[in-house]
């Protein structure tokens, strides 16, 4: 139903069992750290991320989207910087009339490694972090409850809207609407799609808000959660480690 969308993969691995806020801290640390760190450290970081992905057992869920995102990105980087970033003018090789510059390739490689760390950290986070647990964790750290709800609800809204849009288009095409014709026809098709999509969503939103209200969503008073999110010493150590590493890299940069 939600092809192409990377989503949570149930599991019991070590990354899965981390507190969601620990993972938020680590993702932010990886992003900041990869940006600040020298290339060898980024390589080590990448190796650590790949190892975490393998150990946690989500490699099969991560590698395909990672390749889909990184392959065109990497190709673009190497072509553009390799050919157009001259640096000190040292040529690496010549391909026909084009020269590949050493500095360009080095820059492309460094950038690519940083981006790969971003993407891998993001995918690892999404596939191992249960959205509801994340919401609970965020609320516990002070994020407003309604914002937490919107976050999780919007994750579910996308496949629902896709399904609805498909049904509407089917219904309109069945009545002779040509969705692949002239620009005028296409605009007509768009109007025919958005009317019912909007109205249908509004109708179901009305029911949903009533159902939420009746179940006490707006009630005053303390909340509890189905989920217990224990914070272990590993969590504390990892959070602290992430922050110290980023601070250290920042200091190294400044010096």
């Amino acid at each position: 139903m939600s092809e192409g969308i990377v989503s949570y993969r149930p599991g019991e691995g070590p990354i899965h069992s981390l507190h969601p806020i620990t993972k938020v801290v680590l993702v932010v640390s990886v992003i900041a750290g990869a940006y600040l760190a020298p290339t060898p450290v980024v390589v080590a970081l990448l190796a650590a991320l790949v190892a975490a992905t393998v150990v946690d057992g989500v490699l099969d869920a991560v590698w395909r989207p990672a390749v889909t995102i990184l392959l065109p990105l990497g190709a673009g980087l190497f072509v553009i910087h390799g050919l157009f970033t001259r640096g000190d003018g040292t040529a690496l090789t010549a391909v026909g009339p084009a020269t590949v510059w050493r500095a360009g390739v080095e820059f492309a490689l460094a950038t690519f490694l940083v981006l790969a760390a971003f993407v891998l950290a993001g995918l690892l986070f999404v596939t191992t972090t249960h959205p509801k647990r994340l919401m609970v964790g965020l609320i516990e750290t002070g994020v407003p409850r309604k914002l937490g709800y919107v976050f999780v609800a919007s994750l579910q809204l996308v496949p629902e809207l896709q399904r609805r849009a498909r049904n509407i288009l089917d219904a309109q095409r069945s009545r002779g609407l040509d969705t692949g014709g002239s620009p005028r026809e296409r605009i007509r098709a768009l109007v025919a799609l958005f009317g019912p999509l909007l109205i249908g969503t509004l109708v179901s939103t009305q029911t949903r808000s009533l159902a939420l209200e009746a179940r006490g969503f707006s009630m005053e008073g303390p909340r509890t959660s189905l989920y217990d999110l224990p914070e272990t010493t590993v969590d504390h150590a990892l959070r602290l480690g992430g922050v110290i590493a980023v601070a250290g890299l920042g200091a190294w940069r400044l010096l």
Binding site: Q156, S204, T207, R208, A211
Partner: peptide
Amino acid sequence: FESPADQLTGAATT
């Protein structure tokens, strides 16, 4: 409610 899906909270994964 009449509609089975619309009355879900929309924020539950199980």
